[in-house]
Design a protein around this nucleic acid. Structure first.
Lengths: 218, 218
DNA sequence: ATTGATTTTTAGACCGTGCTAACATTTTTA
DNA sequence: TAAAAATGTTAGCACGGTCTAAAAATCAAT
């Protein structure tokens, strides 16, 4: 049985491993940053997780999950996204409100609960942010397509997913009227700062490079 | 913000205060027993809760909740029972499975969550064990009627509620075909041990005094 | 290849929640 | 009412998870 804290470390490691930008290799600092703890704290926990056979770790080396560790982390992501879906679809939470509550709910221990929830929701494939929900067996097709920062000027795309970076980011998108399934037309990209100008229905919006990198389109 | 541990102490104190058998006065031992900790541990926590203004407590004296403490405890009970109802009605959990999971879910912090859940469930009045669900404002009519141990021989009653003493007890009742709304006829009470003989539909069952004290009827 | 910057680890401390052992108080009972 | 039993408290320790400060290892740049 893992503590919530341990689960959070595993989850963070999985996120780092599947992030597009990085090379999939996690370092202590990076991990600590993601969890809002000091690197020293992360080091301690890594020793413990290694002891339990959940991470591959040698001091001063990069960190990766073992198969067991990855399976557990995937299970937590699954729970997180199922709860987000529940909150959004059944309880009328908005896009940007679901994350924090799901962050708590994901640590509830009950296999039956998550399977019944999945069933209750009709075995959804995507959460409210458009992210894939892993199946019970751990399968996950993470076809994260392409980010808005990498699109071709003059082409039309549909937003399929956004990175779940907390309420501020999501509210910002909502304000811009950007959401899952929004159809956009890429008008311009400014090379000096990477910002992108889009046409959306009738109006135009400009987003920074940073924002563009967190929006996935097809 | 209270820790889960603190919440559990408040909840236990409220349960002791509203138990019929006791005199509503909680002692350290009794509290520790209910929480599966040692009395010394409970003493420490009581000091902390007193510090926070949640319990009335002087060393070697009986313990009671302050108004604030009781309000918080009631809120936790409310969450617990709403979650039980959700698990039972929406996710197909059985009577005896809901408690342990609700024990975890009751500590999730989100006012919106509990209000939306209440709404989603159609503002239920009773949980699957027949216990009253407190309203958001803390109202709770605990008309716990009368226990089977106090009934008159030769009279007919309906079971309205049972004490939630964990899966074993609930499974035992199910096995006896005793549930909420079961109609029973009290045939005999043996004075020497307080056990009760009931007629239920076609068959007769005998329950011990201990069991009878945990079944509420009208 | 050496130096300097960055990353990571170690050592020692703290807080929350639990424990045991010993002591203090209250209650029961003879 | 005095002794015995039950109940409750204190003191000191342990463990998980966190921190800071300082040392060690690795990486980057000249």
């Amino acid at each position: 049985m893992l503590s919530s804290t341990e689960e959070n470390y595993l989850k963070a490691l999985l996120r780092i491993a599947t992030e597009k930008d990085g090379n999939g290799e996690a370092g202590t600092n990076q991990l600590a940053l993601k969890l809002n703890v000091k690197p020293a704290t992360a080091t301690d926990m890594l020793k413990k997780l290694k002891e339990k056979g959940l991470v591959e770790y040698q001091k001063y080396k990069k960190i990766s999950l073992t198969d067991t560790g990855r399976a557990l982390a995937t299970g937590i992501i699954r729970k997180h996204r199922l709860w987000e879906t529940f909150l959004f679809k059944k309880l009328g939470f908005s896009w940007d409100e679901v994350h924090d509550v799901a962050e708590q709910l994901e640590h509830i221990q009950s296999d039956k609960l998550v399977e019944q929830l999945d069933n209750f929701l009709g075995y959804p494939q995507f959460d409210p942010h458009g992210d894939m929900i892993p199946r019970a067996n751990g399968e996950l097709k993470s076809d994260k397509s392409v980010t808005l920062a990498e699109t071709l000027v003059g082409t039309q795309y549909t937003i399929v997913s956004v990175t779940d970076n907390g309420p501020d980011f999501l509210q910002y998108l909502s304000q811009l009227k950007l959401g899952i399934q929004s159809v956009i037309h890429v008008l311009t990209r400014f090379d000096f700062d990477g910002s992108v100008v889009l046409k959306l229905h009738d109006h135009e919006v400009t987003v920074s490079k940073k924002v563009a990198e967190n929006i996935y389109v097809v």
